[in-house]
Structure formats: C-alpha cells, structure tokens
Design a protein around this nucleic acid. Structure first.
Lengths: 248, 248
DNA sequence: TGACATCGTTCCGTATCGTGGAATATCTTC
DNA sequence: GAAGATATTCCACGATACGGAACGATGTCA
C-alpha cells in the first residue's frame, strides 16, 4: 500500500525542528528539509493548530509542542479512575504515589505521580514489569491475597538484595500472613538501599485484589516503623475509596 | 492560510491510538475517529513506516512509536559535544551528570544524564532556568569567573534556603574567590536538604566560561567534604577535556 | 467441513487537496 | 526611506489522498 507524502513531510519537519538547539526559524527548517518555504509555512501552521509545534509568540521561532509529549502518556480506565487519589496522596505527603497491577507473574506499574518540585525523586516505574515480588510492597499484597500466586512464588529461590530482604520462605509466609491481617504492606530498603514505601489493596466486587496503591520515597523522608500510622492510613483510605468507587 | 487535512487526520489517529489502554485495533481507531477503515489503514501504514506508530508484530495492535519520544529530546551542538563525557561520568559514579549554561542572569540546565537503574533519582532539570546562583555549584562557577555577573548578583539580597546557604555577600565573595582558585565548586544541601554535587567549568578559546559540567546526587551517596578528591577530579577532568575539544 | 462474521488490505476512478513559484506583507538594519 | 531578510498568502494545476467495494485472512460455530 502507498504511504501519504504529506504526513511523511510533516514528520520530516517535526524532526528538523527537534534538531535545533533553541528554536527553529522557518528558513532553517526549509533548508534542513529541502522543501519550499510556502510548503514549510503551511505545514508549520497546521502542526501549530494541532499543538504539535508551538511558538512562544507570533514571529518567534518554532519548537516541539505539548501534544507530542501527551501522546506518550497512555491512560487506561483504572489509571484514570485512580488518578485523583494518587494526586491527593502526593499533595498530602509530597511523596511518590503509584498504581500497580499483576501482569502474569510479575508486578506492572501502570501509573506514577510525584511532586515535581522535589529534587530527590524516584525514577519513573510506569510500564516496568517487576518480578521480585517479595521485595516490593504492592506485590507483597498480591502474594498475601492470592494463595496460588504465593504457593508458586515461594517454591522458587528468593533472591537477596539488601540485608533487609526477607529471603527465607517460612519467614516470608509469616510476614505475608501479617500483611493480609493488617490490610497493607510496607517495605524499607528490602530491594534497594534508600527506598521505602507502603501499599494498600484495591478489590473488585468479588473481593479479589485487582491493583495496589503505593506511596514511596527516599527513606530519610519516610516515617520510621512505629511512627507510620498516619502515613499508612492515607494510603489505606485512598485504596478503600477507589474500591468503593469500583464497586459502584 | 489553510491547513493540511491529512496531517490533521494523522494526529487524530495518533491521539486515538494513545487513548487505548493497551493496543488499538484498526477498527477501534476507525470508530474513534469516524474515518473509513481504508483511510485509517493507509494512515497507520504511513505512521508505521515513519516510526510514529508501532506493532509488536504484524497483525498485533497499534501503539505509539519511539519517534514520538525522540522528538522531545532536543540536542544542541554543545549538548552533543558534551554527551559522551556526561555519560562517562554516570558510568563511573552512578550519579547524575548535567550540563548548564548562563541564559541572561539565570542558569539554564541544557542536558542531564543519570543511571536509569537508580531508584533514588534527581528530578530532571533540563530546560529549567535557575535564578538562585549562590546555591548551585555550576552557577557559583559563573559567579566566580564573571566579575560583572558577580558584582550585579551580590548587589541583591541573597535568599536563605537551608542552614547551609551562604547568604552573607562578604562570605560568598570569599567563597567564590576560593572557587576560582581551585577551579571547581561544591554545594552540599545549600539549596535543598539532601542534594549535593560538584561542578567544573568549560572555557572557550578566549578563556571565557561558557558552560559547566556537574555531578549531583542525594547527599547520602555523595562523598563527604575532605574525602571528595577523586569524585571532584572526575568532573574537573571531563570539563577540561571538553574545553580542549572545543578549542580544536 | 462449510457457512458466517469480523478484521484488515488492496484496488482504482475521482475530485479534492497539497503543491510551489510568484507576489506580497512584515520586520529589521543601516 | 531604502535595502535586505524573513514569513505569509495566492492560485492554477496536477498529483495525491480519498473511500466504497472487492478481496483475503482468520476465527467461531454448528
């Protein structure tokens, strides 16, 4: 099948604009793409109206517009549903809020929000599949509430990452029983030094865990064990409200 | 001026694809955009060849392609030139390497690289204009080497951010003299708790400072004062090599 | 196995759209 | 005010994109 020349040209122009260090002039783009200035002008006008290209003010140079970055943020209904609660947790604590689900036998992070003004940030886990279920708080919840998953997981060797990692299967089973009883899970430097957080489960109408809400941060900002009740309650409440919303 | 329908349609299709939680089917996109399937098919083929849309395999659903995210990374000649050294610093230390320049009377971060495997990350400063020159290590260098900038800056009140901020103009002038003598600048929690790093200057052929290379991280991972010579030397060496390259 | 439904691809006549050179408008510099 | 540079607009034209129809591939069901 043939392709569409105008669309190919539009992306040539976008890539040319993206290559300029600051802002591109129309003549620069025409030169870079070997297209007539009238063609480039019409393309830039179209891309400008779409929002794929922007100018600080009329007459200013051109640069890549916000629409391009918006295309990479791919929401889903659960991500959309949970977003207000994740943002509220960030507002309340300044720490990083995430949403995760199980995808096969690995945890999948599907959304992450954080305070953009914090210099110390967690890396963005969105889209990442995490196999080491015993070392992260959301996946501990899935292990706690899903006996089949837990049985299969404990049958495998548990890798040790830090001195805090719970690698003994018996010890982990006891720990997961406690997680289920209390209805939330903590990790403190069990996967990596400096990283701590708490998670709470989101259930569907069949009382089945479908997702987990988490609040993470660098350990020096996270309340220590024994003094974390308020912080924990925020996450448990958020997850509980999302569950209620999910049930209708 | 008129706009280009095909380009508008292409972005309609991209936005439709972006809205699907997992992968979009051709029929889904046709429905979402109210376009005939043959039109959508031709568009998806074109966007696929460009790389703006991708399929895991033929017959699989469609999702946003890598080209879109590439458009947001905007290099410049200095950014391109410095990139190998910034990446090397990240490899050597695991910390965050940045490149910054002065833009008017504010510091501008133009590039940042970090180890993607670190959970504790610095937020991305790229594109940010930073006015508080006395609290960041690259801008201390500009203050140290540019007497006019220093004179004008010291004439203004210096804001205090932490107990480590040097807010007294006399004390700052003495500190900047030392920075110029030693040829690098450190900050340790002078702007925000937990944040520390070192910077070294890049000079042009006229011995004028044009940019600064920095290596930042959370303070618990950064070598303490008195034990930072090796860490400092890595940055000074990188900046010196870039200067040599710049000079030809 | 055959019928049927659904999805995606390809074809092709048509006319709409995108083209690009030229003219014009705007802005900056001297 | 003139000259130069940059960007915008116009418009005749034909090349391109269009979309319905036909077709091929795949999956489901009796």
């Amino acid at each position: 099948m043939s392709t569409i020349q105008s669309v190919e040209r539009a992306f040539q122009i976008l890539q040319a604009v993206a290559q300029f260090p600051n802002e591109a002039q129309l003549g620069d783009v025409a030169e870079a793409t070997s297209l007539p200035k009238s063609t480039v002008s019409r393309m830039l006008t179209t891309l400008g109206e779409i929002g794929a290209i922007q100018q600080a003010h009329p007459g200013a140079g051109y640069k890549i517009g916000r629409i391009i970055s918006d295309l990479i943020t791919q929401p889903s209904w659960l991500v959309n549903l949970a977003e207000p609660w994740l943002k509220k947790l960030v507002e309340q604590t300044g720490e990083t809020a995430t949403l995760s689900v199980m995808d096969g036998d690995r945890l999948l992070y599907v959304a992450q929000h954080s305070d953009p003004n914090n210099n110390i940030q967690l890396r963005d886990w969105t889209g990442i599949h995490f196999p080491n279920l015993h070392t992260s708080s959301p996946s501990k919840l899935f292990l706690a509430y899903d006996p089949i998953l837990q049985k299969n997981y404990l049958a495998r060797p548990l890798q040790t990452f830090t001195e805090n990692t719970i690698s003994d299967p018996t010890e982990l089973a006891i720990h997961l029983k406690k997680v289920k009883t209390q209805g939330y899970a903590w990790v403190r430097e069990e996967f990596e030094r400096g990283l701590a957080g708490v998670s709470a489960p989101i259930f569907d109408q069949n009382e089945k865990i479908v997702a987990a809400v988490s609040l993470y941060g660098p350990i020096f900002r996270i309340p220590p064990a024994g003094n974390d009740a308020e912080f924990t309650a925020l996450v448990v409440t958020a997850a509980s409200e999302i569950t209620s919303h999910l049930r209708g």
